[in-house]
């Protein structure tokens, strides 16, 4: 056996031990696993650079490993455009993307608000332009949302993005560098709502929330499924003009890989509809505030999913916004 094979085997005997002590009833023996694996293609999984992406793509990686595929992880690669580029060039084979991001940031198409229409559009266009297949949506919609501190929003009487218009020139905006340039980000938002902020600051996705909490900015481009919104007492503003498209998450896979091994689609579609907004927010919070490792959170969730024990919300987590 090659060294690589030996390493895989070592890896797998450890995993089998873990599995045996866990709740998943896996019956394949160690030897069967290694054998099954040798026949299956290696799948490289990527992700963008924020918690939810790392978490959800870790789930994809773990599911494939559980099904006996050798997996290479290239998580935390960067922004949407970067990960998409990696997928098109074949550097990675799959990652979870959001329909609205595919529609506007990748394809450069105008915003649409009907979730099914957006899904159909991106599915067809990705197929045609890139040879990429969108699998079934996972269930949650991680839309962009503008968030403010609850007290300040109340004080200024701001509940919708339209309410911002009159006061934006006194408010400081913070967002990811990606949001500051995306067509479905600040440029489009400013045009739709006629906004001009006093200051616009770009920063890493992770630190926006703290910047808002510590009053270093007043409005941020939050992710709707970020558990820190309720956690820090933030409020999201209603997108009353319907600017943001829906952003339902779904795995995008290279067609080549799927035609080589169509069973991969079935493996990943186990996640179809399995995660709602609330669940995703709770999972994110376990990493962002609970300090847990994405892989551990993903593992625990998959184990629960396998035993049918996935409830709406785990008791220790804070409920997500409305």
């Amino acid at each position: 056996m090659t060294l690589h094979g030996r390493l895989l085997e070592l890896n797998w005997s450890r995993r089998t031990l873990l599995l045996a002590s866990g709740t998943l009833g896996v019956t394949l023996s160690n030897v069967d696993r290694v054998r099954a694996q040798e026949a299956k293609p290696t799948v490289t999984i990527g992700s963008k650079d924020f918690t939810e992406q790392i978490l959800i793509n870790e789930m994809v990686a773990l599911l494939l490993e559980d099904a006996g595929y050798p997996v290479e992880r290239k998580l935390n690669l960067g922004t949407s455009a970067i990960v998409h580029q990696a997928l098109v060039s074949g550097e990675i084979d799959a990652y979870v993307e959001y329909t609205g991001t595919g529609l506007t940031a990748i394809l450069g198409l105008p915003v649409e608000s009907d979730p099914q229409a957006v899904y159909d559009t991106v599915t067809a266009a990705y197929e045609e332009q890139f040879g990429l297949t969108w699998l079934e949506p996972l269930g949650f919609n991680n839309t962009y949302a503008l968030a403010m501190r609850q007290e300040q929003a109340d004080e200024l009487g701001i509940a919708t993005i339209s309410d911002l218009q009159a006061q934006a020139n006194n408010l400081r905006f913070g967002g990811t560098q990606e949001f500051l340039t995306r067509p479905d980000g600040l440029p489009g938002l400013q045009e739709t709502y006629d906004l001009e902020f006093a200051e616009e600051r770009g920063m890493d996705p992770g630190i926006m929330y703290q910047a808002l909490d510590e009053e270093q900015v007043d409005v941020i481009s939050a992710f709707a499924t970020d558990g820190r919104i309720p956690g820090l007492g933030l409020v999201t503003l209603e997108d009353d003009l319907g600017f943001f498209p829906p952003y339902f998450a779904a795995p995008v896979v290279r067609e080549e890989l799927l035609s080589e091994d169509p069973a991969i689609a079935d493996v990943l579609n186990q996640l179809a509809g399995a995660i709602d907004d609330q669940t995703m927010a709770n999972l994110n919070l376990q990493v962002d505030e609970g300090g847990q490792e994405p892989r551990d959170v993903a593992r625990a969730f998959l184990d629960e999913l396998a035993t049918g024990g996935v409830g709406p919300a785990t008791p220790e987590a804070t409920p997500a916004s409305e």
Binding site: T51, N76, G78, I207, V287
Partner: peptide
């Protein structure tokens, strides 16, 4: 690490992301 090359910078970016 910014351009996806991996390496120890990854840990620093992780820390910035989590403010940890």
């Amino acid at each position: 690490a910014v351009i996806g090359a991996g390496g120890l910078g990854r840990l620093i970016f992780d820390g910035i992301r989590l403010i940890d």
